[in-house]
Design a protein around this nucleic acid. Structure first.
Lengths: 211, 211
DNA sequence: CGGGCATCGTACCGTACGTTACGGTACTGC
DNA sequence: GCAGTACCGTAACGTACGGTACGATGCCCG
């Protein structure tokens, strides 16, 4: 859906309220915050459901970015890509807006007919996977990585990067990691991933190699 | 809080409704399902908040179990403990009730004054950590593991075990792993953990060793 | 047997909120 | 100038739901 400037402002207001109050804002609250009439909200977004969906969709689609090389990778480039990826991802999921959005989406995901969970899932973990797997496969093609199943490799990387950070934040743990901690951990998680899947190390672990 | 048989039935009804409908049940619905009067609900649990809290608390406290040896461990015992731990944890978080409960807790975690998020956090990730860290430290004391920070080690183990499984399920991904897949992965995650933190391997990775 | 107690079923109250309706205002094109 | 359009502000409607009140029913205990 194409959005005018004014409509974006409305969604900004909705998101701000969502972050502040911790729950889906009421139509009244959005209208007041955005200084628009409720009738306009209904005209533009169809109703509460549409308004929240539009809010989530716009924010979720902004998680994009960070194009990664898929050909001609060497160890340095691959490592840097993964570190950047990890850092970027951690910054995203520890952000206030992302936490609020994920809480909303998770809270609704069990209800028949609601789309927020699907949207966040598609633009979150699944989008990360779609963008990362080609990178991993390029690394394998270049002889830098060694794994049989790229989905498995992705999931391990995800686990090493995210660990218990996201679920703890979603459950209300107040301790958000600092910028520095995130940067450090991005490097560390990437190193651990290389330790498990780097082609230059012997496989002294439980992963399945190609052979 | 001590709970009578009848009160447990009421909480069973509340949990069943929560799982079925995907959202917190109404007081009317619980009363009808449990064949009790609303007045009784308010008398027993104080109100909606108390009822939901009691429901979550009871279920969350059942995640206990699996005592693990902390002294005299050898490699086999330690490995088995970790595999069991991983398997147990994965079965829990992929269960229908756990998913519904976590959705409820996450959805409320951002709202001032709600306790569900804290309860699930305490009985979930934090409880896992409290029970696992002594095991890891026992493994280190026995010369089987090598890490500087037991919290770090725990978090890596958590990541290797849970990966993106939980967040995807919470967001509504329908593909729950089979029993077999869980068992297999518990073994694999443990092997990967040993590859990173086993004392008998050289550290060709990014973790910090004691020295 | 009879009074107290716990619980059920149901009716009721107040409020929050999604949704709709409508009058008023500014801007645009003819 | 004037119709048409878009939007704002506010009032009103309907419903869902948390919470309360109350009579009816069964049970325990003296």
């Amino acid at each position: 859906m194409e959005l005018t400037e004014r409509q974006q402002e409305v969604l900004d207001a909705a998101l701000a309220l969502l972050v502040e109050r911790g729950e889906a804002p009421t139509m009244n609250a959005v209208a007041e915050r955005a200084s628009c009439s409720k009738e306009t909200l209904y005209k533009w977004f169809g109703g509460r459901e549409g308004l929240l969906t539009a809010t989530v969709q716009r924010q979720a689609s902004q998680v994009q970015g960070l194009p990664v090389p898929e050909s001609g990778v060497d160890e340095e480039v691959l490592r840097t890509s993964l570190v950047q990826f990890a850092r970027n991802w951690l910054r995203t999921i520890t952000g206030e807006a992302s936490i609020a959005l994920n809480r909303l989406a998770v809270g609704e995901a069990g209800i028949e007919g609601r789309a927020l969970g699907r949207i966040v899932l598609e633009n979150g973990p699944l989008a990360m996977r779609r963008r990362l797997e080609p990178v991993l496969e390029a690394g394998r093609d270049a002889g830098l990585l060694d794994f049989a199943d790229s989905e498995e490799a992705f999931r391990v990387f995800f686990g090493l990067v995210v660990r218990d950070t996201q679920i703890r934040l979603l459950l209300g743990d107040a301790k958000r990691p600092s910028r520095q901690a995130i940067d450090d951990h991005a490097v560390q998680a990437t190193a651990q991933f290389f330790a498990l899947f780097g082609a230059d190390h012997r496989g002294a672990d439980g992963r399945r190699r190609k052979t």
